[in-house]
C-alpha cells in the first residue's frame, strides 16, 4: 500500500516534470507550429494558407498583422480558435503566426530582438511595431470590461455581456476542453438583427430575411411546411392593447400538434389565459419566457390599440 502511494506520487512527479518540459518547449514558435498548426498549414487543407507559400500569406498579411493574430486566436472560417488547442496562450499563437510568416519569407526572423544584435540591423522597422501590436492584442484578449459605478444595474445586462462565448457564460465548464470547440453565439449571430431581449437577436426577422434556414424535416432540407395565415384577436381586460395572435409566425416554426389540443383548445373562447399563468410557464409561457421572446416585450403581443369607445365603457 505504502509502495503504491509512493509509486503514484513518483508517477505524478514525473508527469508534472513532463508537463513543465513540454511547456518550456512550447515557447518556441517552430515547436508550436509543428504541434498545433502543421496538420492543416503544412498541407493546405480546408483553404489553410500553406506553409512557405508567399502567395498564400501575402494577401492575408496585407489585411493587417493584428487582424491575422486576432483571427488565429478567435478562430476564423475553417480555422478553429487557437488552432483547436485551447491551452495555447494568445502570445504563443502570435509566435506561431510569426514563425509561419518567416517560413513564407515575409518576415526575416521570428527571434526576439534582443537575441541577435546583427539581425536587428537587417530587420525592417515594421517588426517592432508588429511586436507591439501582438502585445496589444494579447492585452485586448485578456482584458475584462471594467465595472464602474454607472454600469451597475441589477436587472439589465450591459451590451458587452450579451452572447458571451461558452467558457464565460457561467454554465459551461471552462476546464472542459470541448467547451472551446463549441460555436460561440456571437459568431452565429453576427449578421442577425439585434433585439434587446432573449437571445438579443430577432429570430422572426432572421427567418423572414433568409439569414437562417432551419430545416422543416430532420433529413430532407428541401421539404417545407404549410403556413397558416390566421390572426386571432383576444380582447383583454384593463387598458393594455388587445392581443393579436398570428398563426403565421408560429407555423413557421411549429406543428399544430405542438399547441393543439394539449396547451390550447382549438376553439374560440375556450381558453382562459392570464399573464400570471404565462409568467409561471403555462400556456404562451411554455415557450415565451424560455426560448421564444420573453414577456418583457409586452407590445409584440399586445399590439392592437383599443378603440376609444371601448375604454370609455
Amino acid at each position: 500500500m505504502i509502495l503504491n502511494t509512493k509509486m503514484t506520487s513518483f508517477m505524478s512527479l514525473m508527469m508534472m516534470l513532463c508537463v513543465c518540459l513540454s511547456a518550456k518547449a512550447a515557447k518556441n514558435g517552430q515547436a508550436i507550429v509543428k504541434e498545433n498548426c502543421a496538420p492543416c498549414h503544412e498541407t493546405g487543407v480546408m483553404e489553410a494558407p500553406k506553409m512557405g507559400s508567399k502567395s498564400d500569406w501575402e494577401p492575408r498579411l496585407k489585411q493587417g498583422y493584428r487582424n491575422m493574430v486576432k483571427r488565429a486566436v478567435d478562430g476564423y472560417k475553417n480555422m478553429p480558435a487557437k488552432g483547436g488547442n485551447p491551452l495555447l496562450k494568445p502570445e504563443e499563437v502570435a509566435m506561431a503566426v510569426d514563425h509561419m510568416l518567416v517560413k513564407a519569407g515575409l518576415v526575416e526572423t521570428d527571434q526576439p530582438t534582443t537575441d541577435k544584435k546583427s539581425a536587428t540591423d537587417k530587420k525592417p522597422p515594421t517588426k517592432k511595431v508588429e511586436k507591439d501590436a501582438t502585445k496589444a492584442i494579447v492585452k485586448a484578449v485578456k482584458k475584462k470590461p471594467k465595472k464602474t459605478a454607472n454600469s451597475f444595474n441589477r436587472l439589465m445586462k450591459s451590451k458587452s455581456d450579451w452572447n458571451p462565448p461558452p467558457q464565460e457564460d457561467g454554465i459551461h465548464d471552462p476546464d472542459n476542453e470541448s467547451t472551446y470547440m463549441l460555436q460561440t453565439p456571437r459568431e452565429a449571430f453576427s449578421d442577425i438583427d439585434k433585439n434587446p431581449f432573449g437571445n438579443h437577436v430577432d429570430w422572426v426577422k432572421a427567418l423572414n430575411k433568409g439569414l437562417i434556414d432551419p430545416r422543416f424535416d430532420r433529413l430532407d432540407p428541401e421539404k417545407s411546411g404549410i403556413l397558416m395565415d390566421l390572426n386571432i384577436i383576444r380582447e383583454v381586460k384593463g387598458s393594455m392593447p388587445d392581443v393579436v395572435y398570428p398563426h403565421k409566425q408560429h407555423t413557421q416554426w411549429l406543428d399544430c400538434s405542438n399547441c393543439h389540443p394539449s396547451i390550447f383548445i382549438p376553439q374560440k373562447g375556450a381558453n382562459s389565459i392570464s399573464m400570471a399563468s404565462i409568467l409561471m410557464g403555462k400556456q404562451c409561457g411554455v415557450c415565451h419566457g424560455k426560448v421564444a421572446f420573453p414577456v418583457a416585450e409586452c407590445r409584440r403581443c399586445h399590439s392592437l390599440p383599443k378603440q376609444k369607445t371601448d375604454l370609455a365603457r
Binding site: 422543416f216 430532420r218 411549429l254 415557450c287
Partner: peptide, 12 residues
C-alpha cells in the same frame, strides 16, 4: 433553432 424548426424535435 438556427438549423432546425422547433417542430422537428418537439413534434417529430
Amino acid at each position: 433553432r438556427i438549423r432546425f424548426q422547433c417542430k422537428v424535435c418537439h413534434a417529430d
